[in-house]
Design a protein around this nucleic acid. Structure first.
Lengths: 230, 230
DNA sequence: AATGAATTTTGACATAAATCAAGGCATCAA
DNA sequence: TTGATGCCTTGATTTATGTCAAAATTCATT
């Protein structure tokens, strides 16, 4: 079943809630289709509610004044986003935009805060979600500040391999341009690094298919960040 | 009054709690002195509780394999830290170390989760704290990825000016080395940038005293990140 | 005041990655 | 088949910032 109800019931945020509560949630939520390139909210918007992705893919990002994009998160089915203003009382700190066609549920701030006040387990789940997100950011800051692009890329591949449960072959679920933006670099640099890792026998690349030829080498690269020359 | 009780009662996390609850909190908390350079916890430690700074200054940081340090936060009086493992169920994602002599309160995980389950307003406060922290990280990622060192530095000065409520003169409350680490750079680079901003009449520097001579120039620098040459 | 340790500054140099500019290669509609 | 559009790659060059080494300054302690 691909219904919103089923997805909510299995989401990190609402897992374990009695069905009646899920129904109540659905009653206060508004479903909204999302198309690629469509803005869901923009940095600085007031933010009177948050979202849960039902299907499709959403990117959360920041733009520099010169137009460079840094992706903070990519969210797929079942994942909540845009919760920060609900609890901080301040505007959205980043922008959300559709990447793959799908739909999202919008939960108005007020109704959701009421639910939390009544339902400690939802509060606890939300604390878990935010904590998880803080962990993600510590890694992202570490990557940007302490690692070079090849190390970040190797780390990304290893993480994907785990998530996709496939130790020697992964499929990128985003474009290389988006991957560059997520890793804090630009497509040109990413392209060069892929070629270099290819030449050194660490990976082979065919479109979005990445074959991981030397796991140990990738792990070393992810940790120490140094590649052989040429 | 500089007591732990007074500080807790005014902290973001426990503000508004009835005195009885504060007493209960103090009953489950353990006070611990902290000296400069002392490790409070290390990345990877299990984390069976979190802390609130009573006095002194704590840095939260990551180290690269080559030994470069990236500071994620600096926490002073009344600020909680190390909460992530309490809610994510995973280890500390970073390391905490004393910077200035002081003391902290340790709250065991279990007791605190019980408190939250019974006390929705504490849960809400904690959600606010974590959201605030997520906002901080979005800025840090933006800085590291989309801005250059001079822009980050100018932004830091402007922020400090606001926090210190002093539009044209600020006092650094951390060493320049720590400031470099917080901004994601190294002391040498920071020193050069300070000199450059000095030469251009944006600021004047005397030890830890920074005089802000050209606010508009600093704001432009923080936003666009370009300095005149020489 | 004097010694030693830590912090900060300076200079010369190396380098990762961005920028600029162009070209290749798909995919899709007409 | 043709053109158009978006995405990716490649090459030449620039640039911001890191590295290494040393000097200068500040700070703490005897």
């Amino acid at each position: 079943m691909r219904t919103a109800k089923k997805i909510l019931a299995q989401s990190i945020l609402f897992a374990g809630l009695p069905e009646a509560d899920i129904e109540a949630l659905l009653a206060i939520a508004v479903e909204k289709p999302v198309t690629p390139g469509e803005l869901i909210f923009s940095e600085g918007d007031p933010g009177n509610g948050f979202y849960v992705t039902i299907e499709g893919l959403i990117k959360i990002y920041k733009l520099s004044t010169e137009g460079k994009e840094q992706i903070l998160h990519m969210f797929g089915s079942g994942e909540p986003f845009g919760e920060v203003p609900v609890f901080s009382g301040r505007a959205f700190p980043a922008t959300a935009e559709g990447v793959k066609k799908g739909r999202v549920l919008f939960f108005p701030r007020r109704a959701f805060r009421d639910l939390i006040a009544r339902n400690p387990s939802v509060a606890m789940n939300m604390l878990g979600v935010l904590s998880q997100r803080l962990r993600h950011f510590t890694v992202q800051v570490e990557n940007l500040s302490l690692k070079e692009v090849p190390a970040r890329l190797a780390g990304y591949f290893l993480l994907q391999a785990e998530e996709q449960n496939s130790p020697e072959r992964i499929t990128l679920n985003i474009s290389k341009g988006h991957l560059a933006s997520f890793l804090g670099t630009i497509p040109e640099t990413l392209s060069r690094m892929l070629r270099k890792m290819n030449q050194q026998g660490l990976i082979s690349v065919e479109g979005r298919e990445i074959r991981m030829l030397d796991r140990q080498g990738l792990e070393d690269l992810a940790e120490f960040g140094k590649m052989e020359n040429e």
